[in-house]
């Protein structure tokens, strides 16, 4: 899915750039001239995988934020095309608009029919202008809600793919009721009588992400992030300093393993060495496996119990202290 895409390198990926380019040249030469350079290729591949392992075993939270936003990272439609054998995108909120920042439709996954909804970022500037960088307007949330209701009606599980910097913060969004659209989705998802499987595949940007993100299981890819505010926003508010993004990213505990520990997500889905963008096909395969496992489990639960368990799941979220009332006075 990424073959024609120009590969971009983050600052900490730079050591891989030269090696990957050299490797590509060696492979091309082998194919064109039947050069006997196999040993060289193997040696370079080993060096590349060792360097990749080294870099990726000690990533900082801020580096993971950059990976979650990597320009080459697979987006919702990439996974949908790779994982589902059938997908028909459906459009419109039935109120007045269709939002290209959210894609939604009917799909088939290994024979199981389902509803899939995802935030969709663009690949280049032009596409990003159409897709609004994956930042949905109220009509996007309403389209998602409509498709979830259809899932309930037809007894189809709902899969949502989260990848957004946040809900769209422009004037039109406010004029059309952004807060109300997200709130009403949350309420709707809380009571939806069909399984909901949520996967954070890139950026889980605050309320805009959660607007399609309340579910029975919440999975997160290894280098995805999920946060109440962007590190940039947090740095400028709490540190009064845009440069403090490293500190903010660390303080917010926004990486997948940290969120698993806090009980906010249910499973971390591993990515190929070097991140999903190095091997999108492999990333999709691993993700499909996790989806299969959770959908199979969710299917065995009665709808009554499912909605009750979902309530209890969120009921438990939060950490606080309960002091004795006698000590209080």
């Amino acid at each position: 899915m990424n073959n024609t895409m120009e590969r971009k390198y983050l600052p900490f990926e730079k050591p891989l750039e030269a090696m990957e380019k050299e490797l590509a040249q060696l492979q091309a030469r082998k194919q064109e001239t039947f050069a006997d350079n196999q040993a060289e290729i193997v040696r370079l591949q080993q060096k590349l995988s060792e360097t990749t392992r080294q870099i990726f075993s000690s990533l900082t939270p801020w580096q993971k934020v950059q990976l979650a936003r990597h320009p080459n990272r697979p987006h919702a439609l990439d996974y949908i095309n790779a994982i589902f054998e059938e997908f028909i995108e459906l459009h419109g909120d039935r109120v007045g608009a269709d939002d290209p920042a959210i894609i939604a439709g009917l799909a088939k996954f290994e024979g199981t029919s389902l509803v899939v909804i995802g935030q969709q970022k663009g690949r280049d500037t032009k596409e990003n202008l159409t897709r609004k960088f994956g930042m949905a307007h109220p009509e996007g949330y309403r389209k998602a809600r409509r498709l979830m209701a259809l899932g309930e009606q037809l007894h189809l599980p709902v899969i949502t793919l989260i990848d957004t910097p946040g809900a769209n913060p422009d004037m039109a969004a406010e004029e059309r009721g952004q807060a109300l659209a997200i709130a009403s989705n949350l309420q709707h998802m809380a009571g939806l009588r069909t399984p909901i499987l949520v996967v954070v595949i890139g950026e889980g940007g605050s309320g805009g992400a959660l607007g399609i993100g309340l579910g029975d299981r919440v999975l997160m890819q290894e280098y995805a992030i999920y946060s109440v505010i962007s590190p940039e926003g947090c740095a400028s508010i709490l540190w009064k300093n845009q440069q403090a993004v490293e500190d903010a990213a660390r303080a917010l505990k926004l990486t997948a393993p940290e969120l698993l520990q806090l009980g906010i997500i249910d499973e971390v889905v591993p990515e190929p060495p070097g991140g999903a963008h190095r091997d999108p096909a492999k990333a999709a395969e691993v993700l499909a496996k996790a989806m299969r496992k959770h959908l199979t489990e969710l299917k065995t639960i009665s709808l009554e119990e499912l909605v009750e368990l979902r309530y209890q799941k969120y009921r438990k979220m939060g950490v606080f202290r309960e002091i004795s009332t006698t000590a209080e006075t």
């Binding site: 309320g207 959660l210 946060s227 303080a251 806090l262 906010i264």
Partner: peptide, 8 residues
């Protein structure tokens, strides 16, 4: 952090 988000 995200615990706050989940209160929504």
């Amino acid at each position: 952090g995200a615990l706050s988000l989940m209160q929504m």
